[in-house]
Amino acid sequence: MFSYVTMPIIKISSGTNIIILIFLSLAYLVILDAPLIYFANKNRNRSFLETTENICAIIKVALFLYLITLAYSIFVFNSIVIQFMKASITPGIPEWGITLAVLIAAFANSYKGVGVLARVSVIFVLILLFSILLFALFSIPDLDISRLLPVYEKSNFMELNKCAILIATISTEATILVFFGGCINEKLSIKRTYITSITIYLICLIIIVLPTIMILGNKYAPMLLNPYYTFARQIKLYDSLERFHILSILAGFPCIIMRIGTKSLIGKEIIDTIFKKKTRNGIVILVFILVIMISMNMFKNFKIVLLNLNFYANIMLIGHILLIIICFGIWIAKKKSCNDKRYGTGGS
């Protein structure tokens, strides 16, 4: 639910046709996720750890790089929360206070394992859907459709595709299936689950992005730190409350914590894979979180560069493609070795 906070689709897309972009990014999202889904579907009962039994040096390096990508992404999430909270919600609370609170919540969340994480996420996604639907409904009297009318300023083919790929990479979530393949119930259809999640994503995107643009305009919205928050501030509740934008924070914030939690859990899986050892959840996640906290201090001066959404998208794109290559490399290598074996036995 990254889109909920920073709305990459609005920020990256400034000027391009937003409706085309939504669907195009969705297509790219499916394309980017397809190999991972395929991989997860074929290795249902095994996680990445078991699939890469004969782990080689190249894969180790690649996984390590992916680990750094993950760490960077958690760092970005956390920094965005801090930046936003400091600017709009709780300016009085020191930065470390917010960081501590966010990371402890994320730690508690991921500590309990994937099962709990999945169950919790279902609940939060429902709350989130409810809240965005409520805001969309109450915003109807103020919507100005003319602000949505397409502006083709930069809508050439290349620009649109570039934006769509970047947006898609920010939103890719299929990696979780690769790392927690072993935890998926056998009866569950992965494809159907994926289609459901994509549909929810699309609904979210439409009822978040379009009303925001219609209320804030496509020039003003990209300038804001959190366009959706500013949008939510404008919604009136028929004189009963001045505004109820807090609901958007209450619904969106746990989702970011979930994202941080999931990512740290993936990080833990990767560490397990690299060192070929089942480690305890708590220790690894704690180390992961500590690294982030230290890096927060270290990269203070580069924050503007690191938090740039385009930069983030590019890094994630590289990290993601890396992961897909690894997955397929292993997959093909395994298949090949299987074939060799069969051939060998047949020969003898």
């Binding site: 909270m85 709780t90 609370i93 609170a101 966010v102 919540a105 919790v120 209450l250 979930m258």
Partner: peptide, 14 residues
């Protein structure tokens, strides 16, 4: 922690 705290509490509780 204000509304942030409530959010964190919700995460813990759930």
């Amino acid at each position: 922690l204000g509304i942030l705290g409530i959010g964190i509490g919700v995460v813990f509780m759930v």
